[in-house]
Structure formats: structure tokens, C-alpha cells
Design a protein around this nucleic acid. Structure first.
Length: 907
DNA sequence: GCAAGGTC
């Protein structure tokens, strides 16, 4: 009987073949693919002599793609991608493997699937089955389940063959389809929306700029942006603490205040003065304890990446590349593993023995193997096991190979030292804690002596500080050598390092051990974030704007929740508790609704981008001309009606389903500007029908009509109908030059100061200069204006307009906003009434959000975190809430400010 | 030009 065996990768095909054949009578021959060899040997399965043919794939054999007609970006509406047909196909670079499988399957009776024993492995198994059964439907299909490439496991697996599990593969099918549909739809949507609308000056090296969205890459970006916002929002606050030191027997004990620190200066001073008046310290407690510092758990992929980043500042992506090369050359075990627990069957001693000859750590390895030293300890597991691979460990001794780079050496050394540390005893220290009392205040000091370094001898990446303190006895009294009142300022957390980012992703289940580094690299490739020399990530303007835009919409697409829900559903499918179809239907329905909503609210994305980027003047692009969704098309019921500006400069509202759907509303030819607002019509149905802010050319409309008009295209708008009737529709108007230089305008120009303003009917200014004009703020979308100017901007002096907020948290709340585009001043009306005063838009008094930039316009960067600084008007209040009189700056004595904003702070 | 998951 001929048995075709297929593994997930060539190395497994080779290892399993070697185990089953016991390296006797095994022949290797080439397959169609140069990497995937075929091993042949004889083996007996449950008494049945078999001729075994063992080959492999290289991961997934197939990919999921849309039908041909949906692949071109402009061929369909991105929303269609939620329902477009998808197919699995074998990509060109896997065709050779497919051919090998077909040729071998034709002459076999059995197919045994040796794919990795996880969800993806099961899915690949079904891809192999599809290819093989297409040429040989009579194949008897079996699954070999093994948890390690160990002789006993492998023989057991082949003698106890099982059935492949469809529900595991189904879970992956669902994941693939959801990832593809939401990734492609959102990527096309946001790329086409923004790429030509803004000047995004990133050096793409000739590549097309793609603003991709993915359910893993976006939450990864979210972690980076969130930390950045946290730093921006930080308001430094001064605190005080009392520190005490005692110098005796040539040793120093540094006592820290058990209250930690106080933010109330007066309280701190009062307590400090009490201590100074009665400085005698009495020892109240002396505690001596043995402390252990444990070696790390066995190494898995994420830990390898984190430690290489921390110790060598190597990027996770580069680490995996180097690790892969070491693995391919046989020096370390398989580097993509979740497992941090050695199987009890692993021969750990042999691995240590191989390292005995090394000039640097060979002696340590010898000590480990000597039972007399007592250094050996069986490794503690970290509780993770992917059932497919052991923790990363050395598999071949080397003192460095000629082809190795410094990074190869460092990584191999890390793997070896980590392994040796894992099988070593923890370091042992003796800790002494001393507590003292000074005038009723408690202080403590700690000293440590390292008794046994143990694993720290080989794992020199870690250290354990030790310091000797004087000897104390309970009841002993002494006068401290120093007793001082120290001040400090709270600091924001640091930017996320690569190791932090990996931890966030691991904790929230973003990506797999084999893909996390890809998602991090993608942030850099897409220009969403940058990494500094200390491996810390800062979002770029582009990355921040995208997250801000979605956040302003109220969608948490940049949070890990979506992936968590998907993972939960995948688990249900793989356990057979939900069907693939159910999960696909509910998940995609939800995401499609979210997509359509995001498209309606794309103004938020554009607003966020406008904070960081200049608008582009490029034309000829569809998206530039499609200026916002006005309503759902009532004719085709499938697509949206969008406001457009045609090439001849005329406006219309047309269905995006054109040319299949030709529904259109032509607007008056006298229009010079039109902007879709976030306000909706109360009359027209089905809603929402978004109102449009129109601006007409003054000389082309009758004098009794206003140049500015907030109108509706749903049929209820009498003024719009009249103007359309009077001026004719744009579609029939000849193209004309636009703008103030148009000769027709100049011909009849009158002095605007002699005529009443078209906007407010006052004289002395034109409607362009009207203080009640809404123009500038509209594109920032803060909210509609109510048109009442009663406050001047304290920043630039320009009159402010009273507006009504339209955000989720503050809907209906009034605020004054500076009209100047260059100024960010705004103030809540109710804060004026209660006397707290106005400020430039920053986190502390802006629209509450996790996003400190919201509410801020261009120019607000870098100001966050600085506001909230105590001002002259601050009333000083103690911790109990009582006002404190006479409070002054700690540094210069000025009562008008706190020390943290003192002009002499740097002196 | 798009996702994420395998892998050489």
C-alpha cells in the first residue's frame, strides 16, 4: 500500500521520516518544488506493510481572493466587498507544490496529514485534501496528531490515526473571509478618500501610498497612539516627600517615607518641620528574609523578540529573520512557538552537555551537569503550550560560524544562555528591612546581600542590585545624617517600546507569535508610526489622524475589541458550538453596517486629517469630487447619493451606483460652494438626509435671496426649488471661470460697505467679512453655529461665535469658538457663567474624550499636557478642602503661581 | 494598491 504523508513544512517531513524509518532504507528525491523534497521508506501501520512517501507544503497552500471582477479597486464600490463572491486558489508560487501532491496522490491509497496540530494546521490539511482528492477521489484520508517531534509521539501518532476535524478548519475559513472583506473594504475606502484629498508628504520610494486597515495592524497602531495621547495629556504635578539617610559603620541606609509623597506642600512642610524639631529616629522593626530571584521561563517566540529588543535593540522582524536562519542551519529549534514549557520527555541534560566546550559558558554548563554543585533545577513552565513545538533551545553547538553576523552570534548566545539559565537554580539573596519612627512618621530602608548568584552567573542580561546597610536593633535610637524635604514632578509614561508593544499585543490577542512582528513592521511600512533608537514608537501624523478620525466617529476600530470578538467566535466554531455560516453572517453584517456608517461619517476622518495635512488642489479624482454622502439612494436602494462637483464646476447629488443607477439631483448653476453638513432634515424621509451648506454667486441670484443657505435636496426646501427654477440647473449651464476674478462679477462690483450684509443685513461689511459667518469652522466640523457673537477670543481678539456641540458626550452644549482658522480658542458657555474662564482648546477643557486633540485645530500639537498648569487665579486648597492662605511658589516665593510653572524653575 | 495566516 502506498501512503502519501504531508507535513506543514519540509523540516517536519524530514524529521518524521527519519524517526519512522529509523534512518534505515530512507531515500530522498526531488519534488516539483525545490524546497519540498520527497522521502521514501517502508513502514508498518497496524500490521499493514506500507510504502511511505513523505513530502510537505510550506504553510498555507491556498489563498482567499475576491472574484476577478472585484479585484480592481475602481471596479466596484468598496461596500460591495462585504458580499462579493470569494474563492480559494493556489497562488503561482505554490503551483509546484500542488503539482507534486497531485502526482504523488495519484499512485497512493492513503493520505496521512501531518500538519501542525493547531487551527491553521487543520485548515491547511483540508487544502491538501482538496488538491489530492481532486485527482484521486478514492484516497483514504487520515490525520496524524502529535505534540512534539519525539520518537514515541510520532510512532504513537501513526499507529493511532484519526479523522481530520472540519470545525477547526472552518474557524480559520471564517477568520480568513472576515479579515479579507473588512481589510479590503476599509483599505480601499480610506485610501481613496484621503490620498488625493490631502498633501501627504511621505517618501514612498515610488510605491503607491496605501492607507491600509487591518484587524491586527490597526489595534497595534491604537496601542501606539493611545500611549502617545496619554503622554500628551499628562499634566505635571509637583509633589513633596521627606527623605532620610543614616551613615554608620561606613555604610549608608537610605530611608524612604512610608507615606510615599504628598501633593500638598503645606502638609508636607508641616510634617517635615515636626520631624526636624524632633529628629531622633527609633528603630521599630528589623526584618530579615531570604529572597529568591527566579530564572526566566523557557523561551518562546514572543519572549525571544522582547528580550532581543531589550538587550540588543533588535527589531522583532529582524530577530525573526535571524532566528529563522539559525533554525534553517540547525543551530536552534523551531523559532515560532508559543510553548514555554519543556515536555518531561525532552532530554535537557544532552542539550547542556553539547555546550560544555564553549569558551564562555562551557564551564557553567559543566557546573550544571555536576550533581555536586546542586546548580541544576528542572525548569519552571510558563503555562503556554501550542502542542506543536518545544520552547526555543540550542540544537547544535557552535562557537560562531564564519557566515554569521554579530546579530547571529548575539541571538544564538541569547538562546543558549537562556536555556542554561532555565535549568539553573534561582539566585538567593538576604534582605534586611528596617523601619524607623521620627516624630510619629514612619520610614523604611532595605538592604540586600546576594548569597548565591546561580543562574545570574550565565544570564548576564539580568542583574540584581545589592547594597549593605548598617546593622540595627529594635529600640535603637539615632540622629539621621540627613533629613530633607525633596520635591519632584509627576512625569508621563514613556513611549511604548517594541517589547511593550509585543506585550500589549500578546495580552489582547492581536496576531500570533508568528505574525506579531509583521504587524509592527506594517506600522512602519505604512508610515503610521516611527521607531527611535531606543525602540520606542511614536505615531506619525498620518497614524494619529486615522485613529483620531475613527475615534471621533465613535468607533473603536483601533481598539483590540473587534479582534477579541472574532477570536471568541472562532473558538466557538472550532469547538462546534457555532457554525461557520452563522459567525460569518453576524460578523460581516455588523462590520458592513459599521462600514456604511463610517462612510456616512467620513467627514470626521477628513476633519482629523485636516488637522495635520494641507488640503490637496489635485483634481480629476472621483473622491475629490464626491464631497460627502447626502442620503441613501431611493431609486436603487443600494448605494448612497453623494454631493459631487463636475468638471465644469457645477454641483449635483448623484448615486454612487452610476452608471447602473442614474438617480441624480441637479443643483442650481449659480452655486459657488456646497458642503455636506452633519445636520439632518427633520422633514424628508427616509432619513437621514444631510443638509448642505450652499453658497451662491451673488450676482446670479435675485437680490432678495441670501448668498448662504443651509438647504435640503430631499424635496422640502422651497428656497432651493425657487433658485433652481430661477437660475436653471447646473447640468445645463455652460462652463465658466470660477472665483472672484470672474469678469462678470467685476463688471457690476459695488462697494460692499454701502450695501447691507447678505448674511446679517448689517452695513459696514460684506457677507464675506460678516462676523456671524460660519465659513471657516464648518470644515473642522465642530458643530453648527447659532450665530451670536458676544465673546472676543482672548488669544487673537477675533470675535467668537456661539455654537452648539454635536458630539456624543456634549450634544447640545453651547460653546464659543474663535472664527480664525489659525486659532484654536474655544470655551464652554457654561464655564463662562461659573467663572472658570476660557482657554485654548486642549485636553483639560476640550470635549471630553480619550483623544486630547479633539476640539483642537491646526497648531494645537504639542500644547496638550501643558494646560491645567496652576494659574494666578487658583485658590490653594489643602487635602481636606480648606482654603490655604499665604501659599506661595516653593522656589521664588511668588504667591501667583506654583513652583512647577515658576519662571525660575530652571535656575 | 487591500487582510492575516502559514512558510522558504
Amino acid at each position: 500500500m502506498n501512503v502519501l504523508n504531508v507535513a506543514e513544512k519540509p523540516s517536519v517531513a524530514k524529521s518524521v521520516s527519519a524517526i519512522l524509518s529509523r534512518n534505515q532504507g530512507m531515500r530522498m528525491r526531488e519534488g516539483r518544488s525545490r524546497y519540498n523534497k520527497i522521502f521514501e521508506f517502508n513502514y508498518t501501520i497496524r500490521g499493514q506493510p506500507c510504502h511511505m512517501l513523505f513530502t510537505s507544503v510550506t504553510g498555507h497552500l491556498m489563498e482567499l481572493e475576491f472574484d476577478e471582477r472585484y479585484r480592481k479597486w475602481h471596479a466596484c464600490n468598496p461596500a460591495d466587498l462585504f458580499r462579493a463572491p470569494v474563492n480559494k486558489y493556489v497562488p503561482e508560487d505554490k503551483k509546484d507544490i500542488k503539482r507534486t501532491l497531485e502526482e504523488e496522490a495519484r499512485r497512493c491509497q492513503w493520505l496521512v496529514l501531518w500538519l501542525d496540530c493547531d487551527r491553521e494546521g487543520e485548515n491547511i490539511a483540508f487544502e491538501v485534501v482538496d488538491v489530492c482528492t481532486a485527482v484521486n477521489p478514492r484516497l483514504n484520508i487520515k490525520r496524524a496528531r502529535f505534540s512534539a517531534l519525539i520518537e514515541r509521539e510520532i510512532h504513537h501518532a501513526v499507529q493511532n490515526l484519526e479523522e481530520p476535524k472540519k470545525c477547526l478548519a472552518d474557524a480559520v475559513d471564517a477568520r480568513q473571509e472576515i479579515d479579507l472583506r473588512i481589510g479590503a473594504s476599509f483599505t480601499r475606502f480610506q485610501t481613496m478618500l484621503m490620498k488625493d484629498a490631502f498633501v501627504i508628504d511621505t517618501a514612498t520610494d515610488g510605491r503607491n501610498l496605501v492607507l491600509s486597515y487591518g484587524p491586527c495592524q490597526f489595534p497595534t497602531l491604537g496601542f501606539v497612539v493611545e500611549r502617545y495621547w496619554e503622554i500628551q495629556a499628562h499634566e505635571p504635578e509637583q509633589f513633596w516627600s521627606i527623605n532620610c539617610a543614616h551613615d554608620s559603620d561606613g555604610r549608608i541606609a537610605k530611608f524612604s517615607w512610608m507615606r510615599g509623597h504628598l501633593f500638598d506642600y503645606t502638609c508636607a512642610v508641616i510634617i517635615y518641620e515636626m520631624c526636624v524639631e524632633e529628629p531622633t529616629a527609633t528603630v521599630t522593626n528589623v526584618r530579615q528574609q531570604e529572597k529568591l530571584k527566579y530564572p526566566p521561563h523557557p523561551l518562546n517566540t514572543i519572549e525571544l523578540e522582547k528580550r532581543a529588543s531589550r538587550y540588543f535593540r533588535m527589531s522583532s522582524e529582524h530577530t525573526m529573520k535571524v532566528a529563522e536562519e539559525l533554525y534553517q542551519a540547525g543551530f536552534i529549534s523551531y523559532p515560532r512557538t508559543e510553548t514555554d514549557n519543556f515536555s518531561s520527555r525532552t532530554d535537557l541534560h544532552t542539550i547542556v552537555q553539547e555546550q560544555q566546550g564553549h569558551p564562555e559558558w562551557g564551564v557553567y554548563a559543566q557546573r550544571l551537569l555536576d550533581p555536586g554543585t546542586g546548580l541544576w533545577r528542572n525548569p519552571r513552565g510558563g503555562g503556554h503550550d501550542d502542542k506543536a513545538h518545544p520552547p526555543i533551545h540550542p540544537t547544535k553547538f557552535s562557537t560562531g560560524e564564519s557566515g554569521w553576523s554579530q546579530d547571529h552570534r548575539k541571538l544564538y548566545e541569547l538562546v543558549v544562555r537562556h536555556f542554561l539559565a532555565c535549568v539553573s537554580k534561582p539566585a538567593v539573596g538576604a534582605e534586611t528591612t528596617v523601619e524607623i519612627d521620627i516624630a510619629g512618621e514612619l520610614f523604611s530602608a532595605c538592604g540586600r546581600v546576594i548569597l548565591e548568584k546561580n543562574y545570574l552567573d550565565v544570564y548576564h542580561y539580568e542583574s540584581w542590585g545589592g547594597s549593605l546597610i548598617p546593622t540595627y536593633t529594635i529600640g535603637q535610637q539615632f540622629i539621621p545624617t540627613t533629613l530633607i524635604l525633596d520635591s519632584g514632578v509627576t512625569r508621563p509614561p514613556p513611549l511604548l517600546s517594541e517589547a511593550d508593544l509585543l506585550s500589549c499585543m500578546d495580552k489582547e490577542g492581536i496576531g500570533t507569535d508568528a505574525t506579531m512582528h509583521d504587524h509592527i513592521k506594517k506600522l512602519l511600512d505604512r508610515f503610521y508610526a516611527t521607531k527611535d533608537a531606543n525602540t520606542r514608537f511614536t505615531p506619525t501624523n498620518l497614524g494619529e489622524a486615522l485613529v483620531m478620525g475613527y475615534d471621533d466617529m465613535g468607533y473603536k476600530l483601533w481598539k483590540p475589541y473587534l479582534r477579541a470578538v472574532m477570536e471568541r467566535d472562532m473558538k466557538f466554531v472550532s469547538e462546534g458550538n457555532k457554525s461557520k455560516a452563522d459567525v460569518l453572517a453576524t460578523s460581516l453584517q455588523l462590520m458592513e453596517a459599521c462600514f456604511l456608517d463610517a462612510r456616512v461619517n467620513k467627514g470626521k476622518l477628513l476633519e482629523a486629517m485636516a488637522i495635520f495635512f494641507e488640503r490637496s488642489n489635485r483634481s480629476g479624482n472621483d473622491e475629490l469630487h464626491a464631497m460627502g454622502v447626502v442620503r441613501r439612494c431611493g431609486l436603487c436602494q443600494e448605494s448612497d447619493m453623494v454631493l459631487r462637483k463636475n468638471r465644469d464646476g457645477n454641483f449635483m447629488v448623484g448615486c454612487v451606483g452610476y452608471p447602473q443607477c442614474r438617480n441624480a439631483v441637479w443643483l442650481p448653476g449659480s452655486l459657488s460652494e456646497a458642503v455636506v453638513t452633519t445636520n439632518t432634515c427633520n422633514i424628508c424621509t427616509p432619513g437621514p438626509v444631510y443638509l448642505i451648506q450652499f453658497k451662491f454667486r451673488q450676482l446670479e441670484i435675485p437680490p432678495n435671496y441670501s448668498v448662504n443657505h443651509l438647504g435640503c435636496i430631499g424635496g422640502c426646501d422651497e428656497i432651493l426649488s425657487q433658485l433652481t427654477e430661477i437660475c436653471g440647473r447646473g447640468s445645463r449651464m455652460p462652463a465658466r471661470p470660477r472665483g472672484p476674478t470672474a469678469p462678470t462679477s467685476n463688471a457690476h462690483h459695488t462697494n460692499p460697505r454701502q450695501r447691507p450684509c447678505m448674511n446679517c443685513q448689517e452695513t459696514g461689511h460684506s457677507s464675506n467679512d460678516c462676523p456671524l459667518r460660519s465659513g471657516n469652522v464648518g470644515h473642522r466640523g465642530r458643530s453648527e453655529h447659532n450665530g451670536e457673537a458676544s465673546v472676543s477670543c482672548s488669544s487673537c481678539g477675533t470675535p467668537c461665535i456661539l455654537r452648539t456641540a454635536n458630539t456624543a458626550n456634549n450634544r447640545g452644549r453651547k460653546f464659543y469658538s474663535c472664527q480664525s482658522q489659525e486659532c484654536n480658542f474655544f470655551v464652554w458657555e457654561d464655564s463662562l457663567n461659573n467663572g472658570t474662564g476660557g482657554r485654548s482648546a486642549t485636553r483639560s477643557n476640550s470635549i471630553p474624550s480619550s483623544n486630547p486633540r479633539r476640539g483642537g485645530g491646526r497648531g494645537s500639537r504639542g500644547r496638550g499636557g501643558q494646560t491645567g498648569a496652576h494659574t494666578a487665579a487658583t485658590t490653594f486648597v489643602s487635602a481636606t478642602g480648606d482654603p490655604i492662605s499665604g501659599r506661595r511658589c516653593f522656589r521664588c516665593g511668588d504667591p501667583s503661581h506654583f513652583a512647577n510653572v515658576c519662571p525660575n524653575r530652571g535656575v
